[in-house]
Nucleic acid binder design. Sequence first.
DNA 1: GACGCGTGGTC
DNA 2: TGACCAAGCGT
Length: 274
Amino acid sequence: MSSRSWFSRALLPWYRENQRPLPWRTSPDPYRIWLSEVILQQTRVDQGTAYWHRFVERFPSVSQLAKASEDQVLRLWQGLGYYSRARNLRTAAQQVVKEHGGQFPADHSTLLKLKGVGDYTASAIASICFGIPEPVVDGNVYRVLSRAFGIATPIDSTTGRKEFRGLAAELLSRAHPGDHNQAVMELGAMVCTPRNPRCDECPLARKCIAKAEGRIAELPVKASKTKTRTRHFNYLLIGAKSGIYLRKRTARTFGRGCGSCRWWRPRRRRRRHY
DNA sequence: GACGCGTGGTC
DNA sequence: TGACCAAGCGT
């Protein structure tokens, strides 16, 4: 048994000393944590924080969010991107009210059933709010672990995802899973950054394989190609002295899957990048 | 398992 | 200066 407690032993004190004072860290309220996790999916803290404030102010509880109209939620979400998150947010709030009496479920598998809650978000809520030892594996975790342990398995492969989740579970502090999970992500966001990591500030530096072997820039490894698509759009511009004509597209005029989009010619090319 | 989804930052 | 990335998820 290779004791890997050194990881958490080094990380937790660093986190307690260096964590940012983010507003959702003031209480373990599942509603507020869930809100922050959904907002932060593929979104930077700097961009999402103002939206988090808007939502907790306008909808202080999950039941109030559940009562909101879709338009209301989308208006509050405007500018954040990935708008299906906003629709799923409202749906999940309704699920919590109708299926759980307004209380968030406290286990990973039940959390997973909420719309817009995947493995990452379920683990984050379970560990942060309920102290359940579920490891989170996000982009930060892939980067920190691949470098610290010198793992070159592609993070976007099935075996890679399994390997990193297994390692994250092995490393996870059973006593403080929420802080541990947040600590790894905080390190990835503030110190072990994609480029120009601040290794001199890293509590794991002395044990970091990538640092010792000069492989920091190579890790983590991604296998998938990034594809660039060139699309050609044709626009019909209607000018009128009386102004601009706009109307809301509804399901009748805009199916999810635009059957009448035959006026553009897609062209695609693929490139490998290393 | 691959793909689409949005905006903003970084080099 | 286009490519890559950011606390992923649903289909």
